[in-house]
Amino acid sequence: MISAKSGSTMAFLDTTPREPVFLVFGRSGWIGGLVGELLTQQGARFEFANARLEDRAGILADIERINPTHVLNAAGLTGRPNVDWCESHKLETIRVNVLGMLNLADICFEKKIHLTTYATGCIFHYDKDFPEGSGKGFKESDKPNFTGSYYSYTKAMVESLLSEYPNVLVLRVRMPIVGDLLYPRNFITKIIKYEKVVNIPNSMTVLPELLPYSIEMARRGLTGIMNYTNPGAISHNEILELYKSYIDPDFSWKNFSLEEQAKVIIAPRSNNLLDTARIEGEFPEILGIRESLIKHVFEPAAQQKDTLREAVRQMRGRV
């Protein structure tokens, strides 16, 4: 058996030749819904799971019902409206993000099914060994160094445990972005509605470009950990400058420090650069973060900039 840490296709998986069948967890979630739309567009065979991650018997029933070749997991707790929720709901967070995730991985291992899970890269932060602006990114093999929020603490814990399963691919998503600039969970939507933002360069995931790669990764049987972001980092100010350039030339904002930000949030936030050598090796055509934002977000959004500009102004007026 090949170690999951090698990232190789697993020999022990069910290799009976048949059309891929996907079972998707996270029907009601943001990324789960997008994955379902993408599979539909591709004409792939798939169904959404009925079970919750903490329901082992329900997961087994779903697998017996669907008989999937691949499981795609986009379920989990991030908290609403944000990860601060997890600070006061620790048992619920453990039950889903740790016990539930291990439930799913263990069942897929027993059934010889490949599992791809959309996880998080918010388990690192800049430090003396990985200073901001140095261009040195955290690799898949680096040990997480950020546990400032309970959400990140559980995610770092479960990533370490999942790495022992040779059938699992863990995708480290960061600050996910879509083209809809009014969608509340879109990272860009979050920062354009605030009067003040911190200005720190970060790795980010442009979902319209990267989600199709995840389906292909599953088909290829990739395993281990993958930094699932576009190459490079981009700052909050650089994103807002793009919004100003493409959508609203009168847009303005102010910056504040991490110390000032800490006064209006409960848990600290992760800021980091992830190394993207592995994903670039699999998909050499992947765009850098700035180029991807322009192609997949701002150029399409500019086609309806008048409507969008007015909607954002109204949204900011309610902040």
Rank of each mutant, 00 (worst) to 15 (best):
E299C: 00
D250F: 12
E280Y: 04
A302T: 04
D250G: 14
F256N: 06
L273S: 05
K254M: 09
E310M: 10
E310C: 02
I286R: 02
T276Y: 04
S270R: 01
K305F: 05
D250H: 12
N255E: 13
K244C: 05
E241M: 13
F256W: 15
E280F: 05
V264S: 05
Q304R: 15
D248K: 08
A311F: 13
P249T: 12
P249C: 12
N271D: 11
K254T: 09
K263M: 06
F251M: 10
S270G: 08
D275R: 00
E241P: 02
E280K: 11
A302W: 04
E260Q: 15
E310T: 15
S270I: 08
G288A: 11
P284C: 10
R269P: 00
A277Y: 07
A311N: 11
L287M: 13
Q304C: 14
E280I: 12
G281L: 02
E285P: 03
N272Q: 12
N255F: 05
A262Q: 11
K295T: 08
K295Q: 12
D250C: 10
D306M: 09
S292D: 00
S245P: 06
L273M: 13
F256P: 00
F251V: 07
F283E: 12
E280M: 13
S292P: 05
R269F: 05
P300K: 07
A311C: 13
P300E: 06
K295H: 09
E280V: 09
E260W: 07
N271H: 15
W253Q: 07
F283D: 10
P268G: 00
R278E: 11
S292K: 02
I279M: 02
E285Q: 15
I266Q: 03
R278W: 09
A267S: 15
L274S: 06
F256I: 04
I294E: 09
K254F: 10
Q261N: 08
L293C: 03
G288S: 13
F251P: 06
L273E: 10
